[in-house]
Every structure is written in structure tokens, then in C-alpha cells.
Simulated assay, not measured.
Amino acid sequence: MIFVAQEELIKTIHLNTSEKLDKLRKVTEFQGENLTEYQSLKTITNAIMWKAEKSDSNFLLWLHYMGHYIKYKYKGYWVLLRRERIFSEGTFLSPAIMDKTSDIWTVGDFCHTLYYKKGRMRGISFDTIYKIHIERLAWKPKFEDLNIPREDLIMLE
């Protein structure tokens, strides 16, 4: 799993945002100015999913951007969740955004699923992803709703 292989990058996901966004702009050939607009998120996501080379590097750039967008929109901050591996022993760190009221967006979980398990959004529209994972129309979990021990929450910011 990428989160195990790239643990050092995951631990620093909250750092060097400008550099990561510049790389993302190059990969997606994005010409827009404001990366915190809905249309920018849609354009970049579609470029990553449909045009860009499928790679762990591009995935991590996109994951960072999704988190950056959520962080800006909902005034949150980066955290890591220590999770148990399913098919082997040990744990891994998964990035998330949490706000001051403990609302949480499990960025690592949903991004990983969409990119790797759902074949880069095959059969799923961006608008659906946005409503389910960013606006969270169906469920707006608090950290406590995830049933993760408090000691497995790592504050990055």
C-alpha cells in the first residue's frame, strides 16, 4: 500500500504546499488562478483521473490537493490517523482533515479508494464524489464516530 511505502511523505503532507501545488499544475497543465474554487477542483481531478499518467506520485499530489481544498473551504487542519493493516500485521498512517469541532474528512481513505480501487473514478461522476466526500451530504462524521482511539490521532498542525 502506498501509505506504507511513502510513510515519510505522508508524515509531511502538510508541508511545502506551494511546491506540491506547482507540481500538480504542471502534471495537469492547469492554467487557472484560484485552486480553491469548485471548478478548479473538478478540472484538476478530471485531469488526474482521465489524462495524467497513473502513478503514486500523481496520486499523492492529488490527495494533497483534495486535502488542501477541504482545509481551506472548511477551515480545518491536517491530521494523521493510525490505522490497522487489513492483510498483514502492523499499522499505517492515513491523512485526514479535521476542523475545530472534530468534523473529519478521511482524505486518505476516499482518495485511495477512488484512485486505486475504483479505477480512477470509473463510473463515478465528480459531482457525486463532491457531494459524498467533501460536502458529506449523507454523513458528517466527527472524529469520535470513526471508532479510532484518540492516541491514534496525530496532529500535524
Rank of each mutant, 00 (worst) to 15 (best):
E53F: 02
E89N: 13
Y65N: 06
K11D: 07
D109A: 11
E8H: 11
V79H: 09
I97W: 01
K140P: 00
L9M: 13
Y74A: 01
P141Q: 09
L15Y: 05
I129A: 09
Y38L: 10
F3E: 05
V27Y: 07
H14K: 05
E157K: 11
G67M: 02
V79T: 08
I148H: 01
M66A: 09
T91E: 10
I44V: 10
D99Q: 07
S102Q: 11
Y69R: 13
F126A: 01
I134D: 02
T45H: 09
E8C: 03
I124W: 08
K54I: 11
R122S: 15
T43M: 13
W139Q: 12
Q39T: 11
E53N: 11
T91V: 13
L41H: 01
K142L: 14
I132H: 14
M1V: 07
R120W: 04
E89A: 07
R120E: 07
Y115P: 02
L15A: 14
D127T: 15
T45S: 09
K11P: 05
Q31S: 12
G119V: 04
R120I: 08
S40R: 02
E151R: 10
R25N: 07
K20Q: 14
S88K: 12
I129W: 13
E135P: 00
G108K: 00
E144L: 02
S57H: 14
S18W: 13
P149A: 01
K20I: 06
S40K: 03
P95N: 03
M66V: 13
Q39E: 14
K26Q: 13
G32Y: 04
K117I: 15
L114W: 11
D22Y: 12
E19H: 12
T106W: 06
L114H: 12
F110N: 06
T36R: 15
K26E: 15
M98D: 05
T36Q: 13
L60M: 08
R122A: 13
N34E: 11
E19A: 14
E33W: 02
T45E: 05
R150Q: 12
I44G: 03
F110L: 08
R136P: 05
K54C: 03
C111M: 13
H64W: 07
H133Y: 15
T28L: 12
L137R: 10
S40G: 02
M1L: 06
I10M: 06
L63Q: 13
F30H: 09
I104N: 05
F126L: 00
N58P: 09
Y72F: 04
E144M: 06
R85T: 08
Y116L: 07
E8L: 10
I124K: 12
D145S: 03
G76I: 09
R120C: 02
L81T: 00
